[in-house]
Structures are given as structure tokens and as C-alpha cells.
Design a protein around this nucleic acid. Sequence first.
DNA 1: GTGAAAGCGCTAACAA
DNA 2: TTGTTAGCGCTTTCAC
Lengths: 334, 334
Amino acid sequence: MGVTIKKIAADLNLAVSTVSKALRDSYEISPETKTRVFEYAARLNYVPNLYASSLKRRRSGNIAVVLPEVADSFFSSAIDGIEEVAQSRGYHVMVYLTHEDVGREQSIVHEFRNGRVDGVLMSVVANEATYDHLIELGGRDMPLVFFDRVCEGVHSAQVVTDDFESGRKATQHLIDRGSKRLAFLSLAGDLAIIRLRQEGYRQALCDNGLDEQKNPVVYCTHAEVDNLLLIRTLLQGDYRPDGIVGSVEKVATQTYTICHELNLSIPTQVRVVGFSHLQIAGLLNPSLTTITQPAFEMGKTAAMLLFRGLEEKADVRSEKIIIPSVLVARQSTA
Amino acid sequence: MGVTIKKIAADLNLAVSTVSKALRDSYEISPETKTRVFEYAARLNYVPNLYASSLKRRRSGNIAVVLPEVADSFFSSAIDGIEEVAQSRGYHVMVYLTHEDVGREQSIVHEFRNGRVDGVLMSVVANEATYDHLIELGGRDMPLVFFDRVCEGVHSAQVVTDDFESGRKATQHLIDRGSKRLAFLSLAGDLAIIRLRQEGYRQALCDNGLDEQKNPVVYCTHAEVDNLLLIRTLLQGDYRPDGIVGSVEKVATQTYTICHELNLSIPTQVRVVGFSHLQIAGLLNPSLTTITQPAFEMGKTAAMLLFRGLEEKADVRSEKIIIPSVLVARQSTA
DNA sequence: GTGAAAGCGCTAACAA
DNA sequence: TTGTTAGCGCTTTCAC
């Protein structure tokens, strides 16, 4: 195999421990010896065996990012933020996609028991039937930070946006612009962030004396065809809404698809506002009013929080960081 | 720590080697012993220590994906494909972003010498001043597959799309629709795929008796502000093109931004076609004609190729797989 | 069919 | 300041 500490020690007439310490720049070793070791190691192109040291030190230098999907611009920006922080700290990022499947989430998390990763950043699946696997993960003192999609049943650090207020703002915005019949495109499952956005929606309805019964909540899924059907049905129904709040990025764009299909004019016939991080929301036809989530910052913050738990051994489980979203008004709600 | 093979052995009055073999379902061990071991291990929730076995077996079960960025929908779809294949084979995916910085690419690749990953999937930076680090990587028999952005100086497996033909088709399409003054928005640097797309553009110009001098190639960068300036200048110049080919996703959307800003009508005044994988290209204002790259398939194929090199120990370095792109005509070139 | 023992390469007591 | 030694948890001869 490659060059080992042992070989360096032999060649230099030193003990392996001396070489080991020298390479880790220990104060115990004299400058001269260090220099000798460094130079020789460099000359031989020595690369420490990761597994040997991980075996001893019980850390991998890896963190896991577990996500429902990567196609959503929110998640790809979050990865960007996470990767930046990780790279600057010398950590490595492992990405896992659950595709909204609890089973996959479970087996992925299960894998983490063997020490492949030192900590986990996570946005849970929408239909978290059971979250024992997450509790168990925390049980084996694996630092865990939820970002965006948190799991409420698990006591753990969280980085989220102001979902309730954003939902309320989005809805109020539609009402202010003149929409009278609203609908909230929710996401089936039991996500706290979706529930909060939805409660914000209800709050706004209430604030404006609108009836919850007449201004429905429609539960979408992650299956595009199903959603298109749902939205088509909604927009073809007797009580066609003239203002729609999309609780996640894709339902907003899917609404666009259906409006185009049905020749419904946005915003004249239907106003649309969507939770989204799309860079090109402004280029859509018409440009899309968004609740723009600070995806990059959320990723970055979540990673930094994780590293606090990891390196300072701080118990960050009670930390909850809320980074506000911004309503960017565009043509779709003009 | 957790449950070890040693503890199982002690509790069951067996030797560690017996337990080890039993757990790996060795033919040497009797069915009864195996059952005993399996059941006890399951009861104790035994999880093998990854680092101990990696240290012996010299494989990590990780693969690296090195990308310029993740915001681009091409790359996020590619990750999707890669992750799918990896997950089905029990491998883990590490993601690294270079942000078009050769220095970062070098240090990332350098890191791979310690065995953290068993193989590498890569789309190189645009301005690959030197690629010694990539050659060196191949030198230490690390399986390496380039996808999309290949490095020509390195003998390695490749998964690409039909860039020349796509460039030609895109250009021909503009000409067919009536554009007379063309421009190709290239990417500064020396990427083979960009050069090929550009040669396709030239080919189409030539086929139609158009002058290369009068139908320029504009070199964009990855800095958005710079690009916007370049494109603005192009579209405000004396010789304003009425047909634009965007060689990568972002320059196409940036062209939209500038057209909106300058109140240039697409496609009446300027037709636009872009290399892109945007799901929502059809929702842009106007909908964008794209050369749609098979991003997901390319990721998947690249990963499968890597695994052939990894598990069958096949030398796949001479493999070059070309997956064609599809021109999807939309409003922007009507 | 099972067990003893020698490492994989590195780290960290503890000794010198 | 340097060296000796005993592992980390697992795999793998080779002997029984």
C-alpha cells in the first residue's frame, strides 16, 4: 500500500508515536524533529489513512444531509449553504434523498448507526407516519439539526422560517389585491411548516371576516399528475378561487401549468402567490409573486448549528432559529 | 461503545473469528451457529463498525460527485440520478461544489487520496488551467467518470450529450424560424462541451451561408452581473442579433432578464433557444425553447459506469457514452 | 466446524 | 522530548 507512519518512523529512526505526534503538530515534539518528519512525509507523499484514524478517534469528518428531493430550488440552495460551511471546516457532505418515502428515510437513518457520519441535517418526509427512527438517532447522541421541515415529535435543533407569518402575509396580500375567493394548496401529510403556513392562511381569512368553509384548503401530494388533477378540478369547479396560495414551490408552478391549460389569466382571473426560492420567479409568465425563503442562509445556519453541537459538544437541541422570509410582489398578484 | 463482535463472541462462548464469519454468512460456519449469532446480534442491535472493516477491506462504500454548482437544474437532476443508482447499490454519495474555482477543485480532489471515496463522478470547472490533479487521481487507480463537462486531457470514462449536433440543431432551428442575425452565448474557459456546441453553431452558420464574423460568439462567465452587462451590450449594439443560442442554462435566463429590461420582445425581436433542463421552461414568459439535456439519465449512466469500474474492476476508461438531447420548440422561437 | 493470533494504520496512555 | 505498548473492531490466515 501507500506510505505509512510506520515506514516514515523506520526510515527516520523514530518511533511511530513520535511521527504521529509530529504530524499532528504536537507541542511535545521538538521543532527539528517536526521539520524532519514533515519534509520526509511530504517527499514521500504521505497521506494518512482515514480509516485507521477514524477507528481510533471515533469521528468520520462527514455530515449527512437528508432531503426529500433535490429538484426543488429551496433544497438545492440549502445544499449550497451547507456545503460551503462544511468545506470551510474541513467536513464532507453526504447527500441522501428520501423522495418523500418514510421507508427510505428510515433505512437511511438506520445506516447512520455505524459512524459513517458525525452529524445529520435533515428535512423530513411529508408523511412521517412514525418517527421512532429519528428519536433513536438522537438517543445515540448523534447531533441532529432539522431545517425547514422539522419533526415535532423529536427534541432537536431547528432552523426554520417564519411560516405562520409568511402564510398570513401571503394570504393578506391576495386579499389586499382584491381576491375574494381563496384557496390554499397544502401538502398532504403532517408537516409542521405546512400546518403553520396553513394556520397563517386561516388567520388571514379570519382577520378579514372570510369564511373558512368557503375558502378551502386543498391537499396536494408529491405526485405531479395527481396534483395537476386536483388543481384542475379546483379551478374548473363552481366555486373557482380567484386567489391561490401555494404552500410549496411545485404547487405554485403546477398552478401555472393548469392556468395556462385552462386559459385562465393570471392575475386577472386568478392571483397566485407561492412559497418558493426560484431564481427565475421573475421570468415566469406572468412573473410569480413569492414568499422567498432564505434557503441558502437556512442551510448555512443549520450547518453552523450542527458544528456547534459537534465541535463544542454543546447541547444545541433546544435551539430554534427562525429566519424570516420575504414577500416579493410580482405580476401574478398585480 | 456499542456492541462489538467481541462481546457477542464472549456472550455466546465463541471465538471472534467465528462470529465474524457467521455474520458474513461464511460457508465454514454451521447453520446452527449462524442462527445463534444472527439472532443474538439482532437482539443486541449489533452494528458493525464501518471503520474497522474499511481499514481491513480498503473500501469506503462512498462515491464523490464533484460539480461546479448545484443551483443549475442540470446538475441537480444529475445528482438525483446518481443518488438513485448509488442508493440501490448500497453506496453513499458525497457532494462537492467547486464554484468554478480550479483551486477548490484541486484541493477537493487532493482529499480523495486518503480513501474516503472509492470512485469519483465529475463535471469539471470551466477554466481548467491545469488538470494535473485529475491525471494524478487516475494514476492512483481511482475510478473516475466525467459527465457533461469532461476534461479532454485526461483519459477517462465519459458520459456526455451530443453537443455538436445539439448546437447545430439549435442554430438551424433559429434560422428556420427566420432569424438572420445570430449570436452564440458561450462560456469563457475551455470546456469541450461548450466548444462542441459552438462548433455546431458555426456549422449551422456555414450550412446556411452565414458569415461567422457577423454572427458573433460572446463569452460569458459565471458571474451574473458580468453576463448581464455583456448581454445588455450585445442587445443594445448596432448589430443587434435576432436569434440567440444560450450554451448553458443561466445565460438563457439572463437573456430573458435583459430582454425584459430593454423591452425587447421575444420572439418578435429576438428568438432565444437555450441548453437547459428547466422543468418550468414552458412557464417562462414566453415559454423557452430548449435543448433539453437528459440530465437524470446522464447522472444515472455515469454512476452505473462508475460501478462497473468499481465492482467488476473493469477498465472503463475508454468508454464514452453519448445520450442525445432533444430540441423542444416553444414560444421563444415561434 | 471452530478458534487462536496476527495484523490493517493510527492514537494515546504511560515510561523512559 | 522521544519511545514502548496496548489497543480501536474487524478480517483472515492457519492451526486444531
